[in-house]
Nucleic acid binder design. Structure first.
Lengths: 217, 217
DNA sequence: ACCTGAACACCGTTCAAGT
DNA sequence: ACCTGAACACCGTTCAAGT
């Protein structure tokens, strides 16, 4: 094969290929070599666009965060809590569509451009609502920790090779797991099987978000 | 070399070796082969005690969670908020001592025996405080999400090969990073540099924990 | 049951060389 | 500047065989 410029390659193309592999074949299948073969290029061509493999994966995470539109946050026609609900639920949905990628979420600092944008728009809203600059900054971090933490914990239970099954099915799976908890050793855990199983529900996610918002006001 | 039983090996010995490598040489240096050579055994001997590599790493995480004593949670002589503070701060300290291991925290479900024990003791306390069974279950999950989420996000910025530097130093590093944020694009983020830098402080951790606790009561 | 040697099918990354 | 081929120093895991 002849070398020479192809111009078919770019950072975006590489990120897209990595995400596709992550979704279709899971985290273990994503290698520099598999990404390269997916885009039809030699493995080391990747290094023209990224310094190393982890940089590619970080770009994948930032891409997913950027997929969530933040426009609602600025929509003063909607009550502010509801705006946060909408963005929080949207982010969760988008991330859970890519369980393989979501597992990488909290392994690296959230310092990508899309993550910064997310924080900035949250600060806008919190300032509008009347929080001081300092409280707004602290609150935005708390909200991000809550959202990403619960989404990551939720994604950890999903098969990275498959799109997430419907919520009911996921709760059933968890219920079975908790029914195996020995009641003599963990009486309260065993007694709350139903609630434990529903930890990963949309309802519990919103409940937690509301408790955090209650704590802020 | 002769094969034959050695009896020097056990799951615990393997976990200890893995944690040592994680601390001294970082996540990339932890391989089945390096663990095996650390304990003086052939690589495939590991598979007598664990089904695969990720099982070893999960056991490392559960070991660290188990290191935090939960006795304070049951000490009715201390105000309940303070009990949660103590356990939360203790867990944070213990995990941040092992940044390499902490990065693995939210990549797998929290279903180890020590994690279950943690949840159960939290349920005890929340029931004592007067929460209904359902609210207690939801609240314990919220608290765990908050603690693990902020600890993981904090650990993501640390060099896995080194013990965490003192807090002041870590805040200085972050401040420098945030001073590079362009104020035209992210005005609020840039204006709050000082608070953003302090996201990883003990004080912000406790502040967030208190907001969550406020939301619960 | 517990361990070994050898092998299989891979990795991430570097380097010199081609256009 | 952008890409290739070839190589280096590794991986996780399996399998048959020894005690």
């Amino acid at each position: 094969m002849k070398p020479g410029p192809k111009r078919s390659l770019s950072g975006d193309v590489i990120v897209t290929a990595a995400l596709k592999l992550l979704d279709e074949r899971g985290g273990d299948a994503v290698s520099v070599r598999s990404i390269a073969s997916e885009v039809g290029v030699a493995p080391n061509a990747i290094y023209t666009y990224f310094p190393d493999k982890v940089a590619v994966l970080r770009a994948v995470v930032d891409r997913l965060i950027g997929e969530q539109s933040l426009d609602v946050l600025a929509d003063t026609g909607i009550p502010w809590r509801q705006r946060i609900h909408e963005v929080g639920l949207g982010l969760r949905k988008r991330l859970l569509d890519h369980p393989g990628a979501t597992k990488l979420l909290l392994g690296a600092p959230m310092d990508g451009p899309r993550a910064l944008e997310f924080g900035e728009r949250l600060l806008d809203l919190l300032a509008e609502v009347g929080l001081s600059q300092e409280d707004a900054a602290r609150a935005s971090y708390l909200l991000i920790v809550y959202m990403l933490g619960s989404i990551a914990l939720e994604a950890a239970e999903l098969d990275p090779k498959m799109p997430a099954p419907p919520e009911k099915e996921r709760i059933n799976t968890r219920r079975k797991a908790f029914e195996a908890v020995p009641p003599q050793v963990f009486p309260r855990t065993a007694a709350s099987t139903e609630v434990m199983a529903a930890y990963i529900s949309t309802e519990q996610y919103v409940w937690g978000l509301d408790r955090v918002l209650d704590g802020l006001s």
